[in-house]
Design a protein around this nucleic acid. Sequence first.
DNA 1: TGACTTTGTGTAAATACTACACTAAGTTGT
DNA 2: ACAACTTAGTGTAGTATTTACACAAAGTCA
Lengths: 221, 221
Amino acid sequence: MYQYEHPHPALTTDVVIFTIRDKQLKLLLIMRAGEPYKGKWALPGGFVQQDEDLEAGARRELAEETGIAGVYLEQLYTFGAVDRDPRERVITVAYYALIPSDKIVLQAATDAEAVGWFSLDELPELAFDHQGIVDMAHERLVAKLDYSTIAFQFMPEEFTLSELQDVYEIILREEMDRRNFRKWVLALEQIEETGEERREGAHRPAKLYRVIHPGKVEIIK
Amino acid sequence: MYQYEHPHPALTTDVVIFTIRDKQLKLLLIMRAGEPYKGKWALPGGFVQQDEDLEAGARRELAEETGIAGVYLEQLYTFGAVDRDPRERVITVAYYALIPSDKIVLQAATDAEAVGWFSLDELPELAFDHQGIVDMAHERLVAKLDYSTIAFQFMPEEFTLSELQDVYEIILREEMDRRNFRKWVLALEQIEETGEERREGAHRPAKLYRVIHPGKVEIIK
DNA sequence: TGACTTTGTGTAAATACTACACTAAGTTGT
DNA sequence: ACAACTTAGTGTAGTATTTACACAAAGTCA
């Protein structure tokens, strides 16, 4: 047992894990195995350990659920409404992560929990205040596309400009002019040609590009 | 005594309180009366009560230290490094507040603590990781000037365009062209003439303006 | 009433953004 | 082998936005 003179809240991290799959922006949910909200879908997350920094806790949750590490992770917001958990006062520090589509290798139901990728359009009812967390993460992501290179975090090591444009169009839900998009993205000087090209399908092969500073998200104009 | 099965961290809020005074961006610090860091300057803040939301806790601290309420307050970031407090694990949810210069009425040393306004250029050594919190708040404020109407939160009910321009110049540390600034700020359609003018000093009087939606920070272009 | 100080105002040049259509280079089928 | 098909790759002209810049207006004060 742990004793304190004053009441202390419990502390968790929750992670909104985004990826792009099947031309849709998706996020990872797990089905709760225990009470409360048993059987409801929820964000992956859990208690922060006493000797672990907040981001480390979030990365641990992320690794446990998806088996991957080294991806983009950013603190989103801290949710602490008094009644957000029916058991006791629980503060959650929410993070969001972006995963390149080629890195998705789901741990096969780690803790005997169901795990699934859901399109943002078709989310099931979520446990706790997780819908609010998802909404805020989504807003942040859309906003960051406008003033940073965050979208590059969705790309595998090598990609074509059309694939990159697809990512922008999927997240922003608007079509972009191909020529203008290319001019714009190349002017950022954040990606470079690999020299290789991808040849697939009955059409002209596309040049492959790579991110010059992978893992770094630059603020742009 | 409060008992838990698992270890729980302590939870505090800290508030970076900005204002503009003497043509400088200043923030409020209090001198710590007890250990640790006794005698060091620190951000106002304190423990979140069990029945109080996070923002409510921050507003309470703000009211206790400055005697004012109803000002702009925004969550900044949550700091939770394992060793940020030498006593026990303490998570702090940091907020920042903007106070119009005319509202500054410092409580005369509420808890027998020294209180003072410090220019960002001349901060004393701060307790805990508070310098890092201040740096992040400052960055956020500067960034928000570019894409929101947050600067209006520094203005009193009535103000002149020159005074508003001063606020921008002080925070961004760059001079702006008067004509371009006026065109730009009026095009936002977020302020309107009061019809009155301010006559002070040996020169042409200036028209007074007011914010159309006080308290609301709009995202711009 | 002249000197002084800050307020208030327009225009032209440069820059950035937008819209738009055809050729290039492969694959596949006949 | 060549015609049909599909996606990749490219430039320019018009429009909108941003920037640079200087002088008259309206007070106070000696």
